[in-house]
């Protein structure tokens, strides 16, 4: 029973975060366009808007196209969400909470997130709709391609950290000793890790299909990509999984480069609760940057997307990996 409660904690976090993030996305987009965004539901700056939207989605009719492959169509959103939820089990939320402190943490996370691609194709093909299929195939191509630079940049962090366990990686980044004031975060420990971080960030933006790489669901050309035929709560779960995926990759970036739950002021303001707050702040900062980018940059074309990945990111990440290894050997 205690195990069950322990296991549902991240679920509560994800749902709360998704409600907050969708509200934040709307507010950020509105304010960037000099608008106000939702203001009415719930009083202060319309904070209850997404809750109302969720209630509406639950009540909506669940439409399944006549020629759809029913089982696959119904199960695709749940497989998608299960995959991204399973990955949360190795994220160290604070020094006191981690779902499972296994020794192959990062590897497990990357393995489980590769299920996301398949479930997207599943939903896309089962819809029996050409927009869905096109969007699904684009997603698959994009996510498979961008997995390579993601994994290469994660590997270059692992060379520096020397462990696959995310808890160990977080623990080794506490304190601030670099140059007397900088925290012991991995990004400050090796200059080439900054390049690795840039590659990592570009790849996670592409993997969670956000602008400027939102080709899978580009509204203006593919209606809504793989989720075209989905409605009601199934669509809501797709949305939830997308935001959960965004948070997952942002938190992974926070652990690998910015110290996880380690406080930026050494032992000041540290401890399990403060650790959780620092960790969420770091993750949400990345999420905010993704939202900020969404309203700044236009969308890439499909061939440009692939070209960026295969001709720039992958070679640079390989060279960078070798350079990091050399730096680690010499210093």
């Amino acid at each position: 029973m205690a195990l069950l409660i322990f296991a549902t904690l991240p679920l509560l976090l994800i749902v709360g975060y998704a409600l907050f993030a969708i509200w934040l996305e709307r507010k950020v987009s509105a304010h960037i366009q000099d608008r106000l965004g939702p203001m009415r539901v719930g009083g202060w700056h319309g904070w209850a808007q997404t809750i109302a939207d969720m209630l509406k989605l639950i009540q909506k009719e669940d439409i399944i196209p006549t020629n759809a492959s029913r089982f696959l169509f119904k199960s695709a959103p749940f497989v998608l969400f299960a995959a991204s939820y399973a990955a949360f089990s190795v994220i160290p939320f604070s020094s006191a909470y981690i779902g499972s402190s296994i020794n192959i943490g990062v590897f497990y996370l990357l393995a489980v997130t590769s299920l996301l691609t398949l479930s997207v194709i599943m939903g896309a093909w089962a819809s029996n709709n050409k927009w869905s299929l096109l969007g699904g195939m684009r997603t698959a191509a994009q996510m498979v391609s961008y997995e390579v630079p993601t994994i290469m940049s994660v590997l270059s962090v692992l060379v520096v950290a020397g462990s696959l366990n995310l808890m160990t990686i977080s623990e080794m980044q506490t304190g601030n000793d670099i140059l007397g004031f900088l925290p012991n975060w991995l990004i400050f420990q090796n200059p080439f890790l900054i390049v690795a971080f840039i590659i990592f960030f570009i790849s996670i933006v592409a993997e969670s299909h956000r602008v400027p790489f939102d080709l899978p669901e580009s509204e203006s050309e593919l209606v809504a990509g793989f989720q075209t035929e989905y409605s009601g709560m199934r669509w809501g779960i797709f949305m939830l999984a997308e935001y959960a995926d965004m948070l997952l990759l942002s938190l992974l970036g926070a652990v690998l480069f910015f110290g996880g739950w380690a406080s930026p002021f050494g032992s000041y303001l540290s401890g399990p609760v403060w650790g959780f707050i620092w960790f969420m702040l770091k993750g949400l900062l990345f999420v905010f940057v993704m939202m900020w980018m969404r309203w700044t940059l236009p969308r890439y074309r499909v061939d440009q997307l692939m070209e960026i990945c295969w001709t720039i990111l992958i070679p640079v990440s390989f060279i960078n990996f070798v350079l990091i290894a050399l730096w680690e050997m010499t210093f």
């Binding site: 950020v28 509105a30 304010h31 960037i32 366009q33 000099d34 608008r35 106000l36 203001m39 900020w292 980018m293 309203w295 700044t296 940059l297």
Partner: peptide, 21 residues
């Protein structure tokens, strides 16, 4: 150019909105 664009959007994020409720 990306950073220039992000700067522009950040300025607009901070400036008061032009719409009225």
């Amino acid at each position: 150019t990306i950073f220039t664009g992000m700067g522009v959007t950040m300025r607009h994020l901070l400036q008061p909105s032009v719409t009225l409720r």
